[in-house]
Simulated scan of single mutants.
Amino acid sequence: MTTSDSLRYTRIPTHQSGTIPAVGFGTLIPDPLVTRRATKAALEAGFRHLDCAERYRNEEAVGDALREAFKAGTLQRKDLFVTTKLWNTNHRPERVRPAFDGSRRRLQLDEIDCYIIHTPFAFQPGDEQDPRDEHGRVIYDSGVTLAETWGALERLVDEGHCKSIGLSDITLDKLREIVSIARIRPAMVQVESHPYLPEWDLLDFCREHGIVLQAFAALGHAMKPNVLADPVITAIAERLHRTPAQIALAWALQRGTAFLTTSTNSRRIQENFDISALPDDAMREMRDQITTNIRFNTVVKTGVPGFILRAG
């Protein structure tokens, strides 16, 4: 891991894409107009890694914000790392390229820096993103394997416009399976990770294979128990005159992960970018004294992201 100027500009090397900006802005924001404003605020704050997804249904709004920044000359495409994701209903190989091209069109970008399989679970193919049976149960697709979907992503890299590929909501066992058969290894995996779910074993595996581990819900996504109210974190924050969020995000970078943070508040967006290194004793305290262990999102068991509303 290398830093330039300060912690907030950390870039993590990967076997496939050179380096990836570790500080990322997530665009899981329901309202398109708010998405556009928040994306603009994130770019102005200094974020250079944007995380998007077909499932968020707001790629057009992100694309509009990018086009505005490019047109104004405040941002160059080469300085930006954009990730977007293949949704569960498009796992069949013949659906992968159309889904990828659809995301590129909506984002108004010729190239995607990293295209990620949103979850390892294939849903019934079709236009309904959340297919359910008459009992409200998800309709899965047993006609395709994750390895077949991965092969289709590898062909996207071969054909151009897709610089690297990755996985999200993946367990260590599933990641091992893909790495063992992959012709092109994942450049990045995106998983829930925060001080209450550090995923040390997964992080060690990723380091061994040149894969970036990117933490989503890096601040706990305001779930209970509240990560940002943890007494170890709040004590460090008070001692260092920083916010608990800044402590948790600095911890994420210094232990070797990238992270995503999402907000619609311009002040908080700036605050989440303005992070600086923690002293060694604070890093030790967080590793040794935080004992709570909890996963907030059950997506790794179902393929249904817990932070995305079904309606809309």
Rank of each mutant, 00 (worst) to 15 (best):
residue 202 L to M: 06
residue 137 R to A: 00
residue 255 R to F: 05
residue 248 A to S: 10
residue 208 E to N: 12
residue 242 R to V: 01
residue 152 A to V: 01
residue 133 D to M: 03
residue 184 I to Y: 14
residue 144 V to H: 11
residue 207 R to M: 03
residue 161 H to I: 01
residue 235 A to T: 07
residue 187 A to E: 05
residue 138 V to K: 15
residue 131 P to S: 12
residue 199 E to V: 06
residue 168 S to Q: 10
residue 227 V to C: 13
residue 224 K to G: 00
residue 181 I to T: 09
residue 183 R to N: 07
residue 177 E to G: 13
residue 252 A to Y: 01
residue 153 L to S: 11
residue 195 P to V: 10
residue 181 I to W: 05
residue 178 I to R: 14
residue 143 G to H: 11
residue 163 K to I: 01
residue 242 R to H: 07
residue 209 H to E: 05
residue 215 A to W: 06
residue 238 E to V: 05
residue 253 L to T: 10
residue 136 G to P: 03
residue 254 Q to F: 03
residue 196 Y to E: 09
residue 248 A to R: 15
residue 250 A to S: 08
residue 173 D to C: 05
residue 150 W to Y: 10
residue 165 I to D: 06
residue 210 G to R: 07
residue 242 R to P: 01
residue 199 E to G: 10
residue 159 E to G: 13
residue 164 S to T: 02
residue 137 R to D: 01
residue 191 V to N: 15
residue 221 H to P: 01
residue 170 I to M: 08
residue 207 R to T: 00
residue 173 D to Q: 14
residue 227 V to S: 14
residue 171 T to H: 12
residue 206 C to G: 10
residue 164 S to C: 04
residue 141 D to G: 14
residue 129 Q to F: 04
residue 161 H to T: 06
residue 129 Q to L: 08
residue 146 L to R: 14
residue 237 A to G: 12
residue 235 A to C: 04
residue 201 D to K: 15
residue 190 Q to P: 02
residue 225 P to L: 04
residue 200 W to S: 09
residue 147 A to D: 04
residue 227 V to M: 08
residue 162 C to P: 08
residue 172 L to N: 12
residue 197 L to K: 15
residue 249 L to S: 10
residue 157 V to D: 13
residue 222 A to V: 00
residue 134 E to A: 13
residue 131 P to L: 04
residue 139 I to C: 06
residue 181 I to K: 15
residue 151 G to H: 08
residue 185 R to L: 00
residue 204 D to I: 09
residue 142 S to P: 07
residue 239 R to M: 00
residue 225 P to W: 06
residue 176 R to G: 04
residue 183 R to D: 00
residue 135 H to I: 00
residue 168 S to W: 05
residue 138 V to M: 10
residue 222 A to S: 11
residue 252 A to M: 03
residue 207 R to L: 00
residue 216 F to Q: 14
residue 168 S to M: 01
residue 230 D to T: 05
residue 151 G to F: 02
residue 167 L to H: 11
residue 149 T to P: 03
residue 207 R to S: 04
residue 208 E to Y: 11
residue 170 I to F: 03
residue 143 G to R: 15
residue 145 T to L: 07
residue 239 R to T: 00
residue 136 G to A: 14
residue 164 S to R: 15
residue 132 R to E: 02
residue 240 L to S: 09
residue 251 W to A: 03
residue 149 T to Y: 03
residue 219 L to I: 06
residue 136 G to D: 09
residue 223 M to K: 15
residue 190 Q to G: 05
residue 256 G to W: 05
residue 242 R to M: 01
residue 149 T to Q: 06
residue 213 L to M: 10
residue 129 Q to N: 12
residue 164 S to A: 07
residue 193 S to C: 05
residue 227 V to L: 12
residue 149 T to G: 03
residue 196 Y to A: 09
residue 216 F to I: 01
residue 256 G to N: 11
residue 198 P to L: 04
residue 230 D to E: 06
residue 177 E to D: 11
residue 212 V to Y: 11
residue 179 V to G: 11
residue 216 F to V: 00
residue 208 E to P: 05
residue 175 L to N: 14
residue 216 F to K: 13
residue 200 W to P: 07
residue 256 G to L: 02
residue 198 P to Q: 12
residue 169 D to H: 15
residue 129 Q to A: 10
residue 163 K to Y: 07
residue 194 H to R: 14
residue 182 A to E: 01
residue 189 V to E: 10
residue 152 A to C: 02
residue 202 L to V: 00
residue 165 I to E: 12
residue 172 L to I: 03
residue 180 S to F: 03
residue 157 V to G: 12
residue 150 W to S: 09
residue 203 L to P: 08
